[in-house]
Design a protein around this nucleic acid. Structure first.
Length: 123
RNA sequence: CAAGCUGGCCGUGUGGUCGCGGCCUGGUUCGCCAGGUCGAGGAAAGUCCGCACUCCACAAAGCACGGUGCCGGCUAACGGCCGGGCGGGGUAACCCGACGGAAAGUGCAACAGAGAGGUGUAUUGCCGGCUGGAGCUAUGGCUCUUGGCCGGUGAGGGUGAAACGGUGGUGUAAGAGACCACCAGCAGCGGCAGAGAUGCCGCUGGCUCGGCAAACCCCACCGGGAGCAAGGUCAAGCAGAGUGGAUGAUAUGCUGGGUCGUUUGAUUGUGUGAAAACACAGUCGUAACGCUCUGGUAAACUCAUCGGGGUUGCUCGCCCCGACUGACACUCGGGUAGAUCGCGUGAGCGAAUCAGCAAUGGUUCGCCUAGAUAGAUGACCACUGCCCGUGUCUAACACGGGUACAGAAUGCGGCUUACAGGCCAGCUUGAUCU
RNA sequence: GCGGGUGUAGUUCAGUGGUAGAACGUCUCCUUGCCAAGGAGAAGGUCGUGAGUUCGAAUCUCAUCGCCCGCU
């Protein structure tokens, strides 16, 4: 995933955690909020409690790859933060993919081809 | 063949599609794009030691505190490594050891036991003496005693983790290093071998003088503190200071000079005084601090608001003055976010060769090998390597499953811990065959 | 990256070389018509794990694992 599509500043993360809308899944927590850019940006996080360094890095790589593969389907102008939860430790690519799909649908962040309705997110 | 010991090594590979980071080249609408090339480990881990590097502190020495602890060597250094000594374990290959000092001093040893540190103890026991009782008797005594008192003794039994040497003898009422021989151990002196730890030998001594220092401690040696989020450079924003017509003045920052005052040292004079000394005044020196004086230097003729004044009676406009007002612009020093350097040519890797038992070092040749910063190695597919299970008598083969521990963040030397599965070399013991 | 603390009964904690303890909780009995309170008694421990020192270790030493906190 290109670096300009990534969340890279501590300030951005803090803002998102304070003001973002949240969707929960046993494996993953999704936090999203509007930005002023014409593209969306994504961040990936796994706390020390998730597992050791290898497990944390691997989970972030899997999430990054899943999001990258469906970039064209996601609405522009949103900051999204995916937080890996403890239950996801040990999960393989396919299992995580299912979880991400569910969250995407529930959050209405996917572009719909027929109507261009705006996702319902608290401002 | 089986069991084991030691040292070293590997820890899937190939191709395809999509994707990521660094560097180089070219293009660029300066957003990026294209091509090339490189891109995790043996432990990258834990952070237990040691260095380099950076900043801070610092006369020397000592004390305190912490660490290390047989000897010699290697090393940048180490608590690491190599070789050796001693002790312990194993049939052996081999392995393990915080392995200085207990006659420098202070301490500790529960319970049990008679007695637990120095020279002390006596329950049972053994022995002797006196005496009580019983029996026999040839009347002299003899025998028994699980009675009492006094004395000798520490060999035996028993307690304990540990009890002041072991074996044999002499000796004695019974015994004891009381004495003797041999052995073990200790101390002192000497000799030989060795670089040393240490080993071997001899003589003398008292005859035995124990354990714990991962108890305090003593001795020897080592150690300043903090860490790459160290530290350097650039520097939005916010806050601060200054400037905003000219000149002059003032203020501020930086900087140079002078003077004065205070503190302090030297010295002269005068006064008081017997003197020491004190007081006052002057001169010279010394820095530190403070104040004052002075020079240099730095910076937009901005706008708005409010108040006052002027312009022609009013409004607008214009002009002037003022403000604990605000904005804006600029300047200044410090500096946050951020950027950038630190940051990978190094105690580097590979090969050959020389010195050395070895750790290691020297020489020659070749190689350049990650550098991110919410942190780059991922996803999918095909074939394949290895291991396990099932099917089959075995093999081949088929099917199913598994393929670890773990992810660089300043670098390096060690130690420790985790790890599916496997390879190589040398050695030991046992069994069998030739 | 660096520094510090902690681990003992179900819970909260004592114990700093010599038999593992207290409070609360649990269980049994007494008391009561019943419950609570009260009284009596009992059970409950790999002293986080593994080595070592010592005659003897929760305690001393080393290694290791988990948890918590702080600095930047």
């Amino acid at each position: 995933m290109q670096r300009r599509l990534r969340l890279r500043r501590t300030v951005d993360f803090d803002q998102l955690r304070r003001g973002g809308q949240r969707w929960h899944h046993p494996m993953i927590l999704l936090i999203a909020g509007e930005n002023d850019l014409e593209h969306s940006r994504f961040g990936f996080a796994a706390s020390r409690g998730f597992g050791n360094a290898t497990a944390r890095n691997r989970m972030k790589r899997i999430l990054r790859e899943i999001v990258r593969s469906r970039l064209s389907l996601i609405e522009d102008g949103w900051d999204c933060l995916f937080v890996a939860r403890r239950a996801a430790n040990g999960a393989n690519f396919a299992e995580v993919e299912v979880a991400v799909n569910q969250l995407m649908k529930r959050s209405n962040l996917l572009k719909s081809r027929s109507d261009m309705r705006v996702p319902e997110v608290v401002k």
